[in-house]
Amino acid sequence: MEDRELFDTLKNRPDIEPEQAFSSSLRRELENNPKLKTKKVTVAPLLTIPMTIAIFVFLWMITTGQTLEIRSTASPIISQEKTMVFTGGLFVLLSLVLFIIFVFSKGYTKGKLVFITFALSLCVWVGNLVYANW
């Protein structure tokens, strides 16, 4: 319905003679300015593509029963290390929970922040799975 109305208004608008001097100067500016020509690369696809591949490879490795080779090299033996890992984990958990509460209490329904909450939750889950398999 809205599209129809928009279409009608567009169709019925008065035809104003285009300002040729302005548009040609704009075109020249666009052609000369290399900054405007460069394609904008956002963070989202740059991060998501390798992350998705990594997750699928990891899930495949786990489900087919292959062990991760790093297993023997890095396992915290000393209790001090364990406490440090525990404190670090707790810190990450608390900060992530607070971040999620902040984003949703602010009332964002879309955008980067909401995307980051989902991405971080998934990262944390995958990270914990990797750590558990060490």
């Binding site: 958990l93 929970v97 999620i100 944390v124 914990n128």
Partner: peptide
């Protein structure tokens, strides 16, 4: 989301 994050740390 909080439930999911806590659950993933529980492993």
């Amino acid at each position: 989301l909080c439930g999911f994050v806590i659950q993933s740390f529980a492993i």
